[in-house]
């Protein structure tokens, strides 16, 4: 049974040139998808990677990445929302590429479906009450 897991992977000037995705595809036949990547001027940076495949193969692949010197943190990666702050305006809804933020057609409340959230963060700075957060 295949599944999808998300990781935050940090790199530095020693391994920034390497390709995490290549290792996962070539050596483990996994399906990596880079959701977000940043490189600072000093060569350090981080990316958010989703990896699809058999659970035990994913684990071995991630172990291999760690052994190659990358710092890997598994993410429960999705947006979190402080429901006590949300006022159901809907400003975030049209910004969500996966339709994880939706207006309920009956109640007109805004719902967050974390299963489909890819943690892109597009909604975060559109929230006028700082209810949406993405911790990387």
């Amino acid at each position: 049974m295949t599944m999808e897991k998300k990781y935050k992977i940090s790199y530095n000037e020693n391994n920034v040139q390497g390709s995490v995705a290549y290792i996962l595809v070539k050596e483990f036949d996994l399906t990596p998808n880079i959701l977000k990547a940043e490189i600072e001027g000093d060569g350090t940076g981080k990316m958010v990677l989703s990896v699809k495949g058999e659970p035990d193969v994913i684990d071995r692949g991630i172990q291999r990445i760690q052994d190659a010197g990358y710092n890997v943190i598994p993410l429960c990666s999705h947006i979190t929302r402080d429901d006590s702050k949300c006022w159901d305006c809907g400003a975030c809804v049209s910004l969500c590429p996966t339709h994880s933020l939706r207006v309920d057609p009956e109640t007109f409340e805004v719902n967050l479906g974390i299963e489909t959230c890819i943690a892109c963060g597009a909604c975060v700075n559109a929230c006028s009450v700082h209810a949406l957060k993405l911790v990387l």
Binding site: C89, V93, S94, L95, T107, F108, E109
Partner: peptide, 13 residues
């Protein structure tokens, strides 16, 4: 074009 309301309809209700 995807749309977003900026005012709360559930709040108005």
């Amino acid at each position: 074009i995807r749309t977003s309301s900026l005012s709360s309809y559930s709040g108005a209700r």
